[in-house]
């Protein structure tokens, strides 16, 4: 098995039949001594099938795919930011750089926060927020990051790693640009092949369309042409 890098992803076969047809893309959640873990939210047909798999079931998996997060240098202070299920992508990064990671994790409500227990073991600082205030700080993760960046002196060379809804990433990109902070965001787009052939999963960048599966899924936030 090829060793995965935080931020990479896998294509999982969800059916041996013709419907659903395509493999589904999931971030590497964790590398364990036994293999890899995927964290997903049940959303449609594919994820429902995955939920119903019996222990010991065999499926075909393609990966690890994509580029992954560039690791912070010794001098940099990583701010790891997740919105909702976006935690699946940044978790293994936070785990890898645990001693120094400032983790910001937001969701609409407490029920949509996952693995907070696991997270508590690996952060340097952890800020949890929910839109409805049911857990942690009331407000969005973007607000929390803005507060942090504005009010904390002495954070040496912050660098942002983020995964979550597009709107959240766009706002994080603005914060990063306004404060001269490097930001790496993991993006999502409808994907067919996962290996760069179909050109289905492109995002608009300042140098043209780029494939999320090949040039991404992690992009420099300053490179992306965000949808208004």
């Amino acid at each position: 098995m090829e060793e995965p890098h935080p931020g990479q992803f896998y294509m999982l076969e969800v059916s041996k039949g013709m419907d659903p047809l395509l493999k589904r893309a999931f971030s590497l959640f964790r590398r364990t001594p036994e293999g890899i873990q995927i964290l997903f939210r049940i959303k449609g047909k594919g994820t429902s099938i995955l939920r119903d798999l019996k222990e010991g079931a065999e499926i075909t998996v393609l990966g690890p795919l994509g580029n992954g997060y560039p690791l912070p240098s010794d001098k940099e202070s990583p701010l790891v930011i997740a919105g909702g299920i976006g935690i699946a992508s940044v978790f293994s990064l936070a785990e890898k750089i645990s001693k120094k990671a400032f983790v910001f994790y937001g969701a609409r409500t407490e029920q949509e926060l996952f693995v907070t227990g696991e997270l508590e073991k690996i952060y340097k600082e952890l800020v949890v927020c929910t839109d409805d205030g049911s857990c942690g700080v009331k407000g969005t993760v973007v607000d929390a990051v803005n507060d942090f960046v504005r009010n904390r002196d002495g954070i040496h060379q912050p660098v942002i790693y983020a995964c979550g809804p597009n709107v959240m990433l766009r706002e994080i990109a603005k914060t990063a640009a306004a404060n001269g902070i490097s930001a790496y965001v993991s993006l999502e787009e409808h994907m067919a092949c996962g290996i760069g052939a179909c050109l289905g999963c492109v995002v608009k960048t300042k140098t043209g369309y780029k494939r999320v599966c090949k040039e991404g899924p992690v992009f420099d936030a300053a490179e992306i042409v965000w949808k208004p």
């Binding site: 659903p20 787009e189 409808h190 994907m191 067919a192 050109l199 289905g200 999963c201 492109v202 995002v203």
Partner: peptide, 9 residues
């Protein structure tokens, strides 16, 4: 090429 989304199952 076209803007995304470009594929749908």
């Amino acid at each position: 090429g076209n803007p995304p989304p470009r594929v749908v199952e």
